[in-house]
Computed example of a mutant assay.
Amino acid sequence: MPHKKPEKVSYNIVALGDSLTEGVGDLDNQGYVGVTTKILKKETLVKKVSIQDFGHRGDTSTDLLKKLKRPEIIQAVKKSNTIFLTIGGNDLVHVFKKHFLDLHASDFSTQQKIFSVNLNQVFAEVRRLNPNAHIYYFGLYNPFEDYLGKANKDFVPILNRWNANSTTITKKYTAISFIPTSDLFKGKTDQLLYKDHFHPNKQGYAKMSGRLLDYLKKSRSSVQR
């Protein structure tokens, strides 16, 4: 029997979230979204790629919930079949800013509870608008390892807890992939972060894009043609 030719897929992508989705830190203004869409467009099994990027610097999970009420974002999400999402970094940084001189693990767990509720609501709202689009949600990395010195060993378990908790939340929903990033940046922040020591640089975003593409390939069969 002749092999059936694989069907080509079309990606109708909506990118949501914070400065990582906006691409802050990449001077070519590509970010992981730009890099990923460029590569997808060149793939032989991809028919068409469209992208709407609503990433916004400084947004927290609370901001994202408000954005999901905006008519243009509601329409975009409804029409999409693929969603990229980065959120949570600013929720975490908020704890550092608020309690900088007197940080306690309990400050992070309080904020994590708020973030968990919000992340649940974000997923629930996206699913309400679009039951089928595959969501690719990036976990958090540690941009502070060069700064925290000895305190880094106390922060790493906090970050791991946030990511483990977010992974648990993603598993409650269908068609959501949790994409780990902390291992990509660990021990390499001097090479992979922009000069602000927080956002990825071009190489950092390329690492994120490479991992996202791995996940996209895994779930390609589920993309609406």
Rank of each mutant, 00 (worst) to 15 (best):
H3Y: 02
K4W: 09
K8R: 14
V9G: 06
Y11D: 13
V14I: 14
L16G: 03
G17Y: 09
D18H: 05
D18G: 06
T21K: 07
G25C: 10
D26Q: 10
D26G: 11
L27G: 15
N29I: 11
Y32G: 04
G34H: 09
K38S: 13
K41Y: 15
K42Q: 15
Q52C: 15
D53S: 15
L64R: 00
K67H: 03
K69H: 08
P71C: 13
I73M: 05
K78I: 00
K79P: 14
S80G: 13
N81F: 12
T82L: 14
I83W: 06
F84G: 14
L85C: 06
G88R: 02
V93H: 04
L101H: 02
F108R: 03
F108I: 02
Q112E: 04
K113W: 14
F115K: 09
S116D: 14
V122P: 02
F123E: 07
F123M: 10
L140G: 12
F155V: 05
F155Y: 13
L159N: 12
N163L: 03
I169A: 02
Y173N: 11
A175S: 10
I176V: 10
T181F: 02
T181Y: 03
L184C: 11
K186D: 09
K186G: 06
K195Q: 09
N201Q: 09
N201W: 12
K202W: 12
Q203V: 15
G210A: 04
L212A: 08
S219I: 04
Q224N: 05
Q224H: 01
R225Y: 08
